[in-house]
Each structure stands twice: as C-alpha cells, then as structure tokens.
Amino acid sequence: MARSKWLRRQSTNLVRLAVLLALAAVTLFPLAWIVTGSLKPLEQVFAIPVQWVPDPIQPQNYPDAIQATDFSRPLLNSVIVTSSQVAINLVLCSLAGFGFAKYRFRGREQLFLGVLAMTLLPLQVIMIPLFLIVKGLGWVNTYQGLILPTAASAFGVFFMRQYISTIPSDYVDAARVDGASELTIFRKVVIPQCIPALVTLGVMVGLSSWDEFLWPLIVVGGRELATAPLAMAQLRSLYQTPFHFILAVAVVMVIPPLLAFLFAQRQIIQSVSQTGIK
C-alpha cells in the first residue's frame, strides 16, 4: 500500500518533471537563439536547422556591435535615467510611506487611496497632455523632461507604507521622547529598518525604468539624450544593422535586468506576487 503510493507519486513526479522540462525548453528557446546568434558569424544566424554552437565563436561581435551602432552613449543615458528615477523613488516613496504609516493627518485616507488609484493609470492615456505640459515647461529634449514626469511610482508609495507600518511605533515614539526631530527619526530610525524594502523598491523601479520606451520616444529629440531602448528600436529601421550585431546589442541590454534578477530574485518574485494588492 505505502509502497504503491510511493511508486505512484514518483511516477506523477516524473510526468511533472517531463512537462516542466518541455515547457522550460520552449521558454528558453528564444533566449538561446539570441545568445548563440550574438556570437555567430553573420551567415550562420538564420541557418536552418539552427546551429546551436557558433563556428567560430565570435565574442568580437560585442565590441564591434557597440561601436557600429554607437551604443555607448544610449547605454550611459539609460543608466543616468534609471539611477535618477531609482534615487527619486527611494527618497520620496519612503518619506511618503513614513508619512502615511505613522501619522494621522486629516485626509490621509483619501490621499492614500488617490495614490493607489494612480497605480492603474497608464502613461498611454495621458501621454498627449503630458507632452503638452512638458512642452509648456520647456522640458522637451532635456534630462529633467526625460526623468521627472514618469519618475513617481505609486506602487512604491504603497509598498513602503505597508512595510513601514510593520515597524513598531514604539521605536518612533522612543526616539521622539529623546527629542529627535521628525526628519531625524525618519533618517536614523525608520530608514535603517527599511533596507530590505528599499532594495526591493530600487530593483522594481530600476527594472521598469530601464524598460521605459514610450516616454523617451516622445520627449527625446536628439541622439545626445537617446536611451538604450530608443537606440535599440532604431536598429530595426533606417540603415540596416547586421543581425548578429542586433542580437549582441540585445544581449547587452538584458544583462542589467538579469543581474538585478540574480541579485534580488526573492524580493522581485515576492513583490510581483503582491501586485494583487498594489
């Protein structure tokens, strides 16, 4: 009895494993093609059947591709934009989260619900007026125009507020009794306890910021300010970039999010599973 149950479980496990392996193979197929393609000589990229081992392996494609596509400036711009937006959210979201979690000012509830409502508001339905506003500010084709309008993360406020709520108020009160100012409490008491949450927030904001395409498309005017997604998309139009170069640049673009994932996998998956609440 016990033995047959054990057997049955093992066989269902085997079936599960087989299905999972098949699905994983399908999932990884495009990535494998992209990565191997980025190391191939041009004429092997579209070989059918797919040539999984490049012959010869050409790591030189990477520096060549970055140079031929003039990609270093866009990468730098993306780093600037992403790190600015991360920094803005780390400061402002934790500040606001603290305000919402530990103070009881009038209109707090309505204000917080208002912020929550922003999580569902996509840029797509406000891009036209937002462009007009940014134009009015004279911010078209400037770093501030590229960074500020899409910086604030409503999810970030929610997330930090939930986290800071779990910090016992006794700490805060104790610091207050010691005569610390509210801002000092925030800096010296709240922030040190928020490090794990700040890491998660930074990674989540960084991922979406790195990925942003529509707003830069609208607001950037010249190559000086182009971000990596813009320059990447440009490779598919205009003059033709060789395919193995396109693939190499694509791999370069996915390395930062991959590193972030390796670094903060648990936090990312946890916060995705919480997006239900938002």
Binding site: D70, P216, L217, G222, R223
Partner: peptide, 9 residues
C-alpha cells in the same frame, strides 16, 4: 546629429 530618434518608419 545624424541619428535622430525616434525610430520606426
């Protein structure tokens, strides 16, 4: 500046 984004036709 010889490569003005945005992109696409």
């Amino acid at each position: 500046d010889s490569s003005i984004p945005p992109v696409g036709e």
